[in-house]
Design a protein around this nucleic acid. Sequence first.
DNA 1: AACTCGGGGCA
DNA 2: TGCCCAGAGTT
Length: 216
Amino acid sequence: MLNKTQIRQVLDTMEEMFPDAECELVHRNPFELLIAVVLSAQCTDALVNKVTKDLFLKYKAPEDFLAVPIEELQNDIRSIGLYRNKAKNIQKLSAALIEKYDGEVPHSKIELESLAGVGRKTANVVTSVAFSEPAIAVDTHVERVSKRLGICRWKDSVLEVENTLMRKVPKEEWSETHHRMIFFGRYHCKAKNPQCGICPLLDLCREGKKRIKKLA
DNA sequence: AACTCGGGGCA
DNA sequence: TGCCCAGAGTT
């Protein structure tokens, strides 16, 4: 297991590799952010950005999503995949916002997770990005990278990975850490073809060294 | 813990 | 073509 000093090195190196690692969603208001993140499940953020660009010209508030038949909403988000579930969730979620939260996006993770289509990761991202409450949303990239590097154990659950990261990373860096690890995982420490041969973190990486030895 | 939804992107 | 994706809900 990596100690705090080693994790410090890891994060600094990731920042050098991906200096621009930041979420484009930062510039949205809380409602648009929530919708965008719900839509982003199992598809790339590039695609989400493309779709939401037009989407938010038409739908600006929860009422707007309820004003159309579900087939129309489905069609508007069709290219994003999983669109039937997502359209249904967005209408349910919009109704809940109006009924329970006066049309506003709630701030607490518990309330957010009670909304249709919003799970732990989405709630983390929204509280972190929209309300500046520190959080580390553990997705597949963060989990894989943490396990390969030895920041946590292989068999750790998502929740354990999250707790370990929160314990070992200073709170004010949780949000950046999340984005750095995602970029690192997506473009470098890939699930299928990790770039261990050219990885500046190889010396620190348990799995990477194993992998290199195996290839040799 | 495993399965499903699903079109787009990439090899 | 086939495989995977910045997930959540259900069984």
